[in-house]
């Protein structure tokens, strides 16, 4: 039964990817400028080269054939070159992606660590002043425009107090060799004499962007945990457990939490796409060298191959994460398995 379910999901995933690649492929035609340039990223193509390239891309054949070739190039890693750097777009994305993933995962972690307990406290203390305070704060956090919030934090903690840096992942004076592309692991793996200093510096750089990025998902977590906890607390089995003489804390832990957190896992997946969007804004404000600021630079520079490639990767990632959390949710929750 589970196997069938997975198969259906995978089929859906494949279908979404087909739609996505068709869209990315058609961008080559929809973008202004020369189709050949858009697909290869080459500029100043000589007539001789043009003939060879047209043949390679199959531009003289049907759209369908061209689409097949396009997919082959994607799978071979033979992506278009970026207009601005004349480097393979895929290589550039692999370079900038870890920075975004690192920032997003710390922000997500932060939002789980802060959001879930606060949500539970609010539910347990329903309609008391603590609940009202938490819910109020969550509402404020939910409504704050992220760029304004970011600027406010920069103004207070960087410019006025001078405690935290405003941009980048690490002070430029530390030279850390890139291994994984993730800053904290890279520093720990490196052999430089100033490892501890660099680690502290990296965390100082991470703090503001992570807090800014975590704000929105945290408020969502609080609200969601609270709602779902309240739902669960209404259930008969909770009342039964209480009637059996279990303490409030025991009931909460053994019966309430597990059931209440199930919908939350699903929420994590749904929040991922919002998180990536917000990460782009955060990256631009904090000059964080991730895929967000890379993609926005690409848009400013009309770097069509970069836009096309970035879109493909970011969308695939969001879809994949969504799918994965959904499957996880299904496996954890028997009720969701509507076979």
């Amino acid at each position: 039964m589970m196997f069938h379910y997975l198969l259906r999901r995978l089929f859906l995933l494949g279908f979404v990817f087909v739609a996505l690649t068709i869209f990315a492929f058609s961008l080559g035609y929809l973008f202004p400028g020369d189709v050949l340039g858009n697909f290869t990223g080459l500029r100043n193509i000589s007539p001789a080269e043009e003939i060879v390239l047209r043949q390679q891309l199959g531009l003289d054949q049907s759209y369908w054939q061209q689409y097949i070739y396009f997919n082959q190039r994607i799978l071979d890693g033979n992506w278009a070159l970026s207009f601005s750097s004349q480097q393979n777009v895929l290589d550039e994305i692999i370079n900038v992606m870890p920075a975004t993933l690192e920032l997003a995962s710390y922000a997500l972690l932060l939002s789980l660590i802060v959001g879930i307990p606060l949500g539970i406290i609010a539910a347990v203390r329903k309609d008391k002043w603590l609940d009202k305070l938490i819910s109020g704060l969550a509402l404020v956090g939910y409504s704050i425009p992220i760029f304004w919030w970011a600027l406010l934090l920069i103004m207070v903690f960087s410019l006025t107090l001078g405690w935290l840096p405003t941009s980048g992942r690490l002070s430029v004076l530390y030279e850390i060799p890139t291994m994984s592309g993730f800053m904290l692991p890279d520093i720990l793996l490196s052999q430089v004499p100033y490892r501890e200093e660099a680690l502290v510096d990296a965390i100082r750089h991470l703090l503001l962007p992570a807090v800014v990025l975590a704000t929105y998902p945290t408020t969502v977590m609080i609200r969601f945990t609270r709602e779902s906890m309240l739902d669960v607390l209404e259930q008969n089995y909770i009342k039964t457990a209480r009637a059996k003489g279990l303490t409030r804390l025991q009931v909460l832990y053994t019966h309430g939490l597990r059931n209440a957190l199930l919908p939350v896992t699903r929420q994590v997946g749904l929040q991922f796409s919002t998180l990536i969007t917000l990460a782009m804004i955060t990256e631009v404000i904090f000059s964080w060298p991730g895929i967000g600021s890379w993609l926005i630079d690409g848009i400013y520079q009309r770097n069509f191959p970069a836009i096309q490639g970035g879109l493909l990767v970011v969308s695939s990632l969001v879809i994949a994460v969504n799918m994965f959390t959904e499957i996880l949710h299904t496996m954890l929750n028997p009720l969701a398995r509507k076979f």
Binding site: S158, L159, P165, T166, S167
Partner: peptide, 10 residues
Amino acid sequence: KRIAKLLTHE
């Protein structure tokens, strides 16, 4: 941004 970086001594 350059001025901001000056202010934070980056």
